[in-house]
Structure formats: structure tokens, C-alpha cells
Design a binder for these strands. Structure first.
Lengths: 207, 207
DNA sequence: GTCTATAAGATGATAGAC
DNA sequence: GTCTATCATCTTATAGAC
């Protein structure tokens, strides 16, 4: 990989984390990378193509870095614990912030929408596998499916980190509540077989 | 209210819903409002002041329109049911999309961050009251608090609607999973007093 | 209050020297 | 591959006619 290309791609995600998609421009990116502005177009053709490649690469890297950790998850309790740590780290790392800004920009730009879909999918590949394992043998297995739950977790993280950007205490209390509801599910998970049957019967009677 | 001011303010939220914060400009807003570009500055001084006023007004109106509905909520089941309808309607109305774009833009602009904080707070005033009522007497009352849960619900909605923008089926399945987990909480809510005590005891043993 | 015209600067993108 | 210089076009914002 050409060092200038690498510098430009890194500058994109840095700026996305700090300033968001709104103020992103070829000149801002080049300045951040300490590189001549014309090189953006020499190496990537258009600004959007640079953003696309930078975000895909960053997503691949981020997903891979969480891969081993997610691979060890075998229960909802472990998933919940991992979520707590991930939330803290993501505040500093900003991978989810990049995704949130991608989603915000996707409304306008179709190229960006495609990039966002890729990032969402890539991220989900890792999360869904862990969720599926955590759900296995759990009494809530018959209630929720792994594809849906993993996407719910992802979107909740995205919403939470955006909320965090303007109201940190509020986001903190929101996350605490979600954790407590998660603990509730854990309690159910630890229920005896008799209680499980009662629960399953009651849930059957609903939507 | 001056009709030109009103047209400009409406144009802002329309554009925010359709194109997002990224492409927003005085000229685009004026064109959408079918009004001369210079009138943006005559009436509002700066573009950001126009965006600020437009979003605050739109938030007040949206929150008020949901107020009566939220006022009738007295249980988690009702809250869950309202959430399903709200999700459908918000996809068309776009009030939450406006908030998401506000949050995305807040990363860069401090004025926008203040606007986003206002919108989040205004929205929360309505939701938290309903959540507090729904939680009253519920067995989960000792587990989650209304301020935290209402903010969790808000941020989940924001994340879900952003997800929806690029992957509708994915967002749909995510929402379905959250609903099913909500149904689980409902089942717990309907538990007898003996089961409640067991649950409370088990939860005490945790964080 | 609304218009035209314009200033002063930022933007994406390209041509051509090195 | 990198630079300077430049393009047409876009941006916010203002001055002044009506």
C-alpha cells in the first residue's frame, strides 16, 4: 500500500470521528494527512471513492480486531459483559461513530449508502455468530432469532453512541438500563426446567 | 409568524429528512422554500440559526402530537404497542430522522449540538413520563429506572431508524427482536406474587 | 420584506511542470 | 508520484435598489 494512500485513508476516518460527515472535503482530508490536495484525485479519482475505500478498510480492521473476543462468547451473560467493555472502548476508538456518520450521510449519497451497507454487513457477520452461540440452549432461543437480535444490538449501539455525543450522562443511564434488562434475561436463562416450561407456554399465547 | 419564515423553516426539516445534514445550505433551503436566497439571512442571520429554530419548532410540534398518545400509557404492554405504531409512522413522518441528522451534525457544530440537546430533552420529557407510569407497580420497577429506560428507548429508536435508511429488512428484523424481548418482559410483568419474589431475590444477587 | 448583484472564500476536479 | 496553478462552481453573507 502506497504510504500517501494510507495517510489519506486514515485521515478520512479520523475526520469522520472528530467532525462528522458534514464538513468532510478533499482539502480537509489532504490537510489532515499532510498531503497535497491534488493527490486525493490522483489516487482515488473522487472524494467519495476515497471515503468509500477508507471506511471499508477501517471496518474490516475493526471487525477483525473484535473477532477473537466475540469468538469466545458462548452465553448471553458473556455477550452482555463484552458489550459493556465494547461500549467503553468504542467511545475512544470511534469505529461505531464512523458507521453512524456513514449512515447519516447515506441519506444523501448513494455511494455512501452502499458503503454503509457493507460496513453494517461486515460488522454483523461477527456479531451474529456470537449471538447465535449465546442463544443456543437458552430459554429465550424460542423467542428471539440471532439475525434479528444481532441487528438490534448493532443499531442500539449506534443510537447510543450518537446520543453519547451530545449527552453523555443521558447515554450512560440509557446503557445502564439496557444492561439491567439484560440481567433480567440472564436470570431467566438460569431458570430451572419447570419454570422454563411455564415461560414458554405463556409466550406461546402471545404474538 | 411571517409566511416566508415559516416556509424556510419547513424547508429545513424537509431537506433534513430527505437529504440529511451533509448537503444542507442556504441556497438549497431557499430553493426548496421557493424563496429568495437572501431572505435566509434577512430573517435568520445565519444558516445555522435557521436550522436551530426550525428544528426546535419541529421538535416541539412533534412531541406535542405524541403527547396525548403517550399520556394514555399505563403499562409496559401499552408502551410496547405504542412503540410499534410509532415506528411505522416515524418512517413516514421523519421526526426521529431529523433528530438523527441533528446528532450527526452535532459532532462538528456546537450550535447544532445545543439544538440536538434541546430536541433530545424535549422528546424525553414526553417519553419519560409515560415510562414512569408504565413502570409503576411492575416487577421490573426495581430493576430499571424511568430516566434510563426512556433514554434507552429513544436512542434505540434513533439507531433503528438510521439502520432502516440503508437496510430496511435488517431494521425490521431488529425491531421484531426487540418487540419479542419486550414481550418477555410483559410475561414477567404478569407473573404471580410468588414468582415475583423469586425473581427479585435472584436479581438482588447481581450487579 | 423582497429583489438583484456582488463580494470573498470554499469546493471538486484537471492540466501541466517536475 | 508529487507539485503549483487554475477552472468552474458552489458557499455564506452583505449592499443597495425597489
Amino acid at each position: 500500500m502506497n504510504p500517501t494512500k494510507a495517510k489519506l485513508m486514515l485521515a478520512v476516518t479520523d475526520l469522520l470521528k472528530e467532525d462528522g460527515i458534514a464538513g468532510l472535503s478533499a482539502r480537509a482530508i489532504a490537510a489532515r494527512a499532510e498531503v497535497n490536495q491534488a493527490l486525493v484525485f490522483y489516487h482515488f479519482g473522487t472524494v467519495m471513492d476515497l471515503v468509500d475505500q477508507a471506511c471499508r478498510a477501517a471496518t474490516d480492521e475493526a471487525a477483525a480486531s473484535y473477532r477473537d473476543e466475540l469468538a469466545e462468547v458462548t452465553s448471553l451473560s458473556e455477550l452482555l459483559e463484552l458489550g459493556r467493555g465494547l461500549h467503553e472502548r468504542e467511545r475512544a476508538a470511534g469505529n461505531i461513530t464512523v458507521m453512524a456518520q456513514l449512515l447519516a450521510g447515506a441519506q444523501r449519497d448513494k455511494t455512501l449508502a452502499e458503503t454503509a451497507r457493507y460496513a453494517l454487513g461486515r460488522w454483523n457477520d461477527e456479531v451474529e455468530a456470537a449471538v447465535a452461540r449465546a442463544l443456543e440452549g437458552s430459554p429465550v432461543e424460542s423467542v428471539v432469532d440471532a439475525p434479528g437480535l444481532s441487528r438490534a444490538i448493532s443499531s442500539a449501539f449506534i443510537g447510543l453512541l450518537m446520543y453519547d455525543g451530545v449527552d453523555r450522562p443521558g447515554a450512560e443511564s440509557a446503557f445502564a438500563s439496557l444492561e439491567q434488562l439484560g440481567a433480567l434475561v440472564e436470570v431467566i436463562e438460569d431458570l430451572g426446567p419447570a419454570a422454563r416450561l411455564v415461560l414458554r407456554a405463556r409466550l406461546k399465547g402471545r404474538g
